[in-house]
Design a protein around this nucleic acid. Structure first.
Lengths: 217, 217
DNA sequence: ACCTGAACACCGTTCAAGT
DNA sequence: ACCTGAACACCGTTCAAGT
């Protein structure tokens, strides 16, 4: 009855709780996440968690911030578009590894790491000298793209995985009767080999648009 | 004990339940939405709802679809960019009236009205003859913009309303110590008179980018 | 066919008691 | 200072009984 659970007997702390919660959400989805389940996973009583975390909401803020810690803010000082692209690509990959995060992102207050991340994006845009209005709009456009686009991508993937598996062609035929363009689009998704980098394409649309709209030409 | 509750004694049906639920979510937020609360509002037992709605998840799908019914799909056949802009502006206004919808949008399967809406967007892009890759990416870019941008806008509004009200300048000063660009950005939000149409600005960035990327030049 | 109260299996969190 | 079981006030939904 000793070494079956590896991390059970370390003392509890906030970091360990958040990491367990992130792992659980990655595996089972955030809707299955329960204080009782995390406690079970950590081998402690439910209420022990509350010695390190004020409540479930605050815990989710911390969980998102842990995931943000896996991203890389854009580099300051070089080519601002290249820095944005590189940072966005990393964030995109991180969010795909933690598919519950995009939906929580806007629902919760930002934690410190997310603040830092956002501040860096604003700094890069500011130093690109595009003018204050472009910085203001561009910031929203870029962050929205990173989170919103990935959110949509994940939603598509999940619907296609669960709904299409068994029905496949029959489902598509029914869909096509009423929604022909939608059926074509779903077919395009199915044919997509995953190498098309649609995410980067739309990001470039936005970045190029910002540059063109900016005063430096 | 007669006429105090207006709609109490009509027979229950799915439409009436969904409308009551939408009104409740508009007023109290979707996280406060409860089967028991809707039943109370309709003056019936909780379980009566289940004669018309299979469960809470399916009810939320129907609620989102009711809100989609307030939007206007883009017009087919004319100037595709103008049609997109007009339709997106309406959708933006509708989503601001029902601030819980953007967060639910990607979480749920689409209902029939949302299918129709999406199919129309795809049709307009298809008939603009931009090429299949642009249709594919453009569809995601546009829908993501409509929902994602508005979601972000709502989140900002709520954080600013609740968090800033009492603290205001002190909050901003603290924020500015660690996150100077973020503090500037929040100040820009506060100065924003609401007439700047940032939503339309970024949409144009995307639409113009799609046109430029398309083969018709 | 529609309605409904009681009951069940869960939640997050408070409280009081332990070390 | 940290831990914890019992209990509370909720959930969504099943079930069996009513009309």
């Amino acid at each position: 009855m000793a070494a079956t659970q590896s991390t059970t007997r370390q003392p509890l702390d906030k970091q360990r709780i958040l990491e367990a919660a992130v792992a659980f959400a990655d595996e089972h989805g955030v809707e299955a996440l329960t204080m009782r389940k995390i406690a079970e996973k950590l081998g402690c009583g439910v209420m022990s968690l509350y010695n390190h975390v004020v409540n479930k909401d605050e815990m989710l803020v911390g969980m998102v911030d842990i995931v943000v810690g896996e991203t890389e803010p854009p580099a300051i000082g070089g080519d601002w578009k290249a820095a944005m692209r590189a940072s966005a690509a990393i964030a995109h990959a991180v969010l795909l590894r933690h598919p519950w995060v995009p939906a929580e992102w806007s629902r919760r207050m930002p934690g410190p790491k997310r603040m830092r991340y956002m501040d860096s994006i604003l700094q890069v845009l500011t130093e690109a000298e595009l003018g204050p209005e472009i910085v203001y709009s561009g910031y929203h456009a870029v962050t929205m793209h990173i989170v919103g686009f990935t959110l949509q991508e994940i939603a598509y993937k999940q619907v296609l995985d669960t709904d299409l598996e068994q029905l496949a062609s029959q489902f598509l035929a029914d869909l096509g009767d009423d929604y022909p363009h939608m059926a074509d689009h779903v077919r395009a998704h199915l044919d997509d080999d995953g190498n098309s980098d649609e995410f980067g394409f739309v990001l470039d649309l936005i970045l190029d648009g910002l540059e063109r709209a900016g005063p430096k030409r």
